[in-house]
Amino acid sequence: MTEMAWSDGRWTHPPVATREQDGDLLVTAVAGSDAWRLTSYGFVHESEHALLAPFPDRSAVEVELTAAFGEQFDQAGVFVRVGPERWIKAGVEFADGRCQLGAVVTHGMSDWSLAPVPDWVGRRITVRVSRDGTAITVRAGLSGGPLQLVRVVPFAAELDAQAGPLVCAPTRAGLEVPLHSWRRTEPDADLHP
């Protein structure tokens, strides 16, 4: 396992502010920041705050954060980017009045899956994205506990990708998310441990 330094990544779109505190990176999102392409809403949003570094095949990325959310679509997790029309965001999002675990997979157009995790609000969460040659596997859970399977996404080994922490605030100003760690590690050995 390798701890990534916050300086190892480059922002897709700079946040309002970042500051380091006791090893954490506190990220303040721009109001209206988001990643989405077309489906159901008709718009394209390409204003996410994703701190990205190369994401080679046969590796995994983990981000630990506190889900300090309370407004519609506040979100944080992991972003995997191949290009402007092909990317994945996975993590925790405040949607329809509660904390949700989900993923958006975009290949031209976005899809979206959610599952309620109301007891995760204000708690430390780990989001893990693992690349194994034919797929990306997304897992998440309370930090220190078991990670649950969220999504399996087809993803060819030859794709040139980047990945890292994500923060967005689609509907408000002032969202500050504490990112506690960003790690690169070995990919998952099995889909079902």
Rank of each mutant, 00 (worst) to 15 (best):
T39H: 11
T185K: 09
Q162D: 11
P170E: 13
R151Y: 14
R184D: 10
P118M: 03
R131G: 01
F79S: 15
G144W: 07
L51Q: 02
G9M: 10
T18P: 11
F155W: 12
L191C: 08
I125V: 15
V27N: 03
S143W: 13
T134L: 08
V16C: 05
R183E: 11
G164P: 07
V104G: 02
R172S: 15
H107M: 14
A53D: 01
V152W: 06
R139Q: 14
V117T: 03
W120I: 01
S7Q: 13
F69L: 09
F43I: 01
A103Q: 00
A31E: 06
D96M: 02
A53V: 06
L52D: 02
D57W: 04
E93G: 00
L25F: 03
D96H: 08
G164Y: 05
F69R: 14
V150M: 15
F55C: 01
A76I: 00
R19D: 11
G133F: 11
G164Q: 06
V177W: 01
D34W: 06
G91C: 08
F55L: 05
V127R: 02
G77F: 00
L175Y: 09
T2R: 12
Q162V: 13
G70P: 05
R10P: 05
V61L: 14
E20R: 03
D190C: 03
T171P: 11
A29G: 13
V150G: 13
A95I: 01
W6L: 04
L159I: 11
Q100D: 07
D160S: 12
P15C: 07
F43V: 06
G9F: 03
A35K: 01
A115S: 04
E20I: 00
G108L: 03
A17W: 12
S113E: 07
D24Q: 13
S33M: 01
G164M: 10
P193H: 12
I125T: 02
V129Q: 07
L147D: 12
T185A: 14
L52F: 08
F79V: 09
A50D: 02
A173Y: 14
C99Q: 09
A103D: 02
D57Q: 15
K89A: 00
A161F: 05
I88P: 00
P14T: 03
G23F: 14
T185P: 07
A17P: 09
A17R: 12
V78M: 11
S130L: 09
L159Y: 08
L26F: 08
C99F: 04
E20V: 07
R172F: 14
D8G: 08
A31L: 00
G77T: 02
G23W: 08
S110W: 04
G102H: 09
A53W: 01
T134W: 07
D190I: 09
L114W: 02
H49V: 07
E20D: 09
V129E: 08
D24F: 12
S113V: 07
T137V: 13
Q75V: 01
R58D: 15
L142C: 13
V152K: 02
V153H: 00
V153Q: 00
L179P: 02
R58V: 10
P54M: 05
D8S: 12
D96N: 10
H13P: 03
R183F: 04
L147C: 12
R10A: 13
T66P: 14
V30M: 13
R81S: 10
R131A: 08
A50T: 06
V152N: 05
A163R: 14
